[in-house]
């Protein structure tokens, strides 16, 4: 791509994709912005055809003023943070284990990846009914086996349960990316460190972990993007009750349950801002790793 000619050609070739993507993004974005400044309650007879009233920033102040707003931001951050914490740590452990030569390696690897292929709705249902059900769930049976009172998972420990379910879904992704990174580590580096007198823990800390930093960065970035908008798992399990109402779930409720499109759109704009703040923070913290 060095010559002027090839640069021009490249731009022309890329143009359709760029224009399509821009349209894809810009149309919903402008519509959200448009609705967020309007009073739009379809059940009260508001419609595009009759023209919508301009209400300025009223939707924005009402969305933030609602008592559910800050708890929902907190819930979102707790879920994202919790899932990242669990998946990164367990992902590293699993990647190191799977890298060991063992019998049936191929089958085990496929089993580890399997949860990723299960739809979020389905896996949440499976967890809710098969594992966490306080009467028939496997976990309830386990608790009873040890003579303990079965836990009401989704109501008494709603947040940890949700983090558990989502982590189970995302662990394969983290493991897979981290495993390829582990496998790309030059074994002579580890041997050199071994000869330099570093025991296993120190080899992990000084050689393996820095080598993995880039892969960890990628896992964190990609998962954050997807986890900020997590919805199906909450819808299926708690329905937003017991303190699990995230920002995206709150927006859903405003638009579909309260039928207030304007208010929901304002929430959508807040969600975009939150996502960008998180993204900037992440880039700052981990961006260093990407260009090293």
């Amino acid at each position: 791509m060095a010559t002027k000619h090839s640069r021009v050609a490249a731009r022309v070739m890329l143009a359709p994709a760029v224009i399509l993507l821009l349209g894809w993004m810009l149309v919903p974005l402008t519509m959200t912005l448009f609705f967020s400044f309007k009073k739009y309650l379809p059940l009260r007879g508001d419609s595009m055809a009759n023209g919508l009233d301009w209400v300025g920033f009223e939707n924005y102040t009402r969305f933030v003023g609602s008592s559910s707003f800050w708890p929902s931001v907190q819930a979102t951050l707790v879920i994202v943070g919790g899932v990242l914490f669990v998946t990164v740590i367990l992902g590293i452990v699993l990647a190191l284990l799977l890298d060991q030569p063992m019998w049936g390696q191929g089958v085990v690897r496929i089993l580890v990846i399997a949860p990723f292929f299960v739809m979020p709705t389905v896996s949440a249902l499976v967890w809710k009914n098969m594992f966490m059900d306080p009467v028939n769930g496997l976990l309830a049976h386990l608790w009873k086996f040890f003579g303990a009172e079965p836990l009401q998972w989704l109501s008494q420990a709603s947040m940890p349960s949700l983090i558990l379910i989502v982590s189970w879904q995302w662990l394969p992704f983290a493991t897979l990316i981290l495993l390829t990174a582990v496998q790309s580590l030059d074994s002579e580096q580890l041997e050199a460190a071994e000869m330099d007198g570093a025991p296993y823990i120190k080899r992990f800390w000084f050689i393996v972990l820095p080598h993995l930093s880039r892969a960890i960065t990628i896992v964190i970035l990609i998962q954050t993007i997807f986890l900020l908008s997590i919805f199906a798992e909450i819808f299926v399990t708690t329905g937003g009750a017991f303190g699990t109402k995230t920002l995206s779930y709150l927006i859903f409720q405003r638009v579909l349950e309260s039928q207030n499109v304007g208010l929901g759109s304002a929430g959508g704009v807040y969600a975009i801002i939150l996502a960008n703040i998180v993204a900037i923070f992440l880039m700052r913290i981990v961006g260093k790793n990407l260009d090293a």
């Binding site: 030059d186 002579e188 041997e191 050199a192 460190a193 071994e194 000869m195 025991p199 820095p210 080598h211």
Partner: peptide, 18 residues
């Protein structure tokens, strides 16, 4: 290896890149 008091220089150098 660490207890043998020997130092090794590898063909790939095996320096720690970070």
């Amino acid at each position: 290896p660490a207890k043998r008091g020997l130092a090794m220089v590898f063909q790939s150098y095996a320096l720690y890149p970070h």
